[in-house]
Design a protein around this nucleic acid. Structure first.
Lengths: 110, 110
DNA sequence: TTATTATATTGCAATATTACGATAAATAAT
DNA sequence: ATTATTTATCGTAATATTGCAATATAATAA
């Protein structure tokens, strides 16, 4: 197969999985880290920062954008990318809830 | 290619990506959700809960285990799976740091 | 207009993932 | 010992991902 059976899961589960999947590659974590590190929004110096070819970086940026983790503004010939908080906040909400539940049932388990 | 160039990234970036990738499938989010919902540790009723074939579930469990998100104890013919907190805590630490940095630079951006 | 610069898209090869049927392995029950 | 139960593994098909060279696109600069 190769395709996930998304229809078997809740909208929330699919949503969280999409965000997590977008973060599931070290290049994309590196891009997020870099966008957080630099104060100004960044475009193509990501290519200099990360040792991957330009089309590969472009593809990773696209996936982060599709997942709602980053957004981009055209500014001249360059495109200024930056973190889009929405998806990350959705994820954080899920994750904090998860950790709260975990603490409540500590030691109930193997 | 199809293989990530992990050597280009830091150990931390690779570690976070591995955990995120393991969470990057709705079935695995559903498994995590289920393990959190039930009070006792769970084995094969995950197969009843999630509409995927047993080998598929087994494979997803293996990936969660490899990422350190769950652990399993043999108990008779069954295997009792439960959440393993370590990886999730590592991830949460990364994520909280990310959100802290984000708040500091609000409005600096596109 | 013709470069130049920055990014995206296309096309492709290598590899990984997802899913499942068939089967194996391991323990428990009869 | 035989049978049932539970989970893992193997093999395989369909699809997705990763990465890059080549090329296209779009905006600015000369």
């Amino acid at each position: 197969m190769g395709a996930s059976k998304t229809e078997n899961f809740t909208a929330k589960q699919n949503q969280i999985a999409v965000i997590a999947k977008a973060m599931g590659h070290p290049a994309r974590i590196a891009i997020i880290d870099y966008l957080l590190k630099v104060d100004t929004c960044i475009c193509g110096d990501i290519v200099n920062e990360i040792k991957l070819a330009q089309p590969t970086i472009s593809q990773h940026l696209k996936e982060l954008k599709n997942a709602g983790i980053i957004k981009g503004n055209i500014s001249g010939t360059a495109i200024c990318y930056c973190i889009d908080e929405k998806a990350l906040q959705t994820f954080q909400k899920y994750f904090n809830n998860l950790e709260t539940k975990l603490e409540k049932k500590k030691l109930n388990c193997c």
